[in-house]
Design a protein around this nucleic acid. Structure first.
Lengths: 215, 215
DNA sequence: GTCTATAGCAGGATAGAC
DNA sequence: GTCTATCCTGCTATAGAC
């Protein structure tokens, strides 16, 4: 079912929206120009007119839609940076809220956003370089600094690893909801996202305290 | 650079090997029949002759190569099941060794194996249903039972979540080596896999003991 | 700017020689 | 079983009317 637009939506914007949805769900090669223009309710020449090529449209999806959406998530962390005392619990809480519960609370939009980057992580293209540089590296830099503030004495490498452990869980859990259903039965799906969030938070808080009880 | 074959390799086997490599690296749609047959050093009609269609070849890659390779990993866990006393440390150690260090120690083969399943996790097809049923669900069943044995009183759901936390880290870490390099500099790459393995083990062991210090 | 029509090419699949 | 030649469909991109 295609999204509904009012007549004031410019063609270019509709193309970006539908292209993002289709690229995320099926992958670049599996989507045809005809399919995108049909979903955007325009003619087959529109992509080449507005973007020059199918590939350029793909890149513009990242530049104009993916990166701005990802950047919104920074705000919560920048608030955290203002505070004088930061705890591991707070960092993990904000971390999880950002990706499972924040500006991406709309399920379809979060799925689209996640699927686009997952495909780039698995099979990197030109878009991957852009995202690593513009989003992922700055994001981890902020996180590493926060962790080092909350846990003085933590090395840069250790802080990075810990953040990646949290993020890795979130990425994986968003993939395996159908597997959880196969393992636990369909009635288990009620409140599954909330249960997953609580688990990841608990698991990670304990994981962070790796040096808490040592020497 | 294509793999070298001796003349006794039947055409069908060469097609499966090259198809797996290409599908894993570029995705089903991005690979052409002509590309696969060229890599397998045969003619363009060979795929339709031996497998009926390109899609059938894709499914056979999973049936004849991916699933048997994944099943090899079970053996280490089945050994663990024989033991009377099982600790969390042992489970996590075997878990990690299976996927970062076991029968998949050859880098190219591990990458191929991982990329195929990542694409299916992100954009499921008919192959996904097959894998969940034949490999993933039985695998988690064994793991859940082991965890419940090592930590009596753990619920089925909790055991599943904990295993998924470990696995999620491994999947993510295998994806983000280039990001680690961007964050830490190129010299950091030395021994990176070993460092990652040690980190995941430590983080997870502490994460597992979520109930250790409570109430 | 929008659209139709089509060029030009690459795709998967097949027929039939050997 | 292997191969060449070819069919036909679908693709991206473009030309040119409006």
């Amino acid at each position: 079912m295609a999204t509904q637009y009012n007549d004031t939506d410019p063609t270019k914007e509709r193309l970006l929206v539908e292209a993002e949805r289709l690229f995320a769900n099926k992958g670049f090669e599996a989507v045809s120009v005809r399919e995108i223009t049909a979903a955007a309710e325009t003619n087959t020449a529109a992509i080449n007119y507005h973007f020059g090529s199918k590939w350029n449209l793909y890149m513009e999806v990242f530049r104009q839609r993916w990166i701005p959406r990802a950047t919104q998530n920074f705000h919560l962390f920048q608030q955290l940076q203002q505070k004088s005392d930061v705890t591991v619990e707070e960092i993990i809480g904000v971390f999880i809220r950002c990706f499972m519960d924040g500006p991406l609370s709309d399920h379809a939009e979060r799925t689209t956003h996640a699927r686009l980057i997952h495909k780039e992580l698995d099979t990197p293209t030109e878009a991957y370089d852009l995202i690593v540089k513009e989003v992922i590296v700055p994001f981890y830099e902020v996180l590493i600094e926060l962790v080092q503030r909350a846990m003085p004495g933590t090395s840069r490498q250790e802080a990075m690893f810990k953040c990646m452990s949290v993020f890795g869980q979130m990425v994986y859990f968003s993939h395996v909801l159908p597997i959880m259903e196969a393992l636990m039965g369909p009635e288990f799906l009620d409140g599954l996202i909330e249960k997953s969030i609580r688990h990841i938070a608990e698991f990670s808080i304990h994981g962070f305290n790796v040096d808490g009880g040592r020497s």
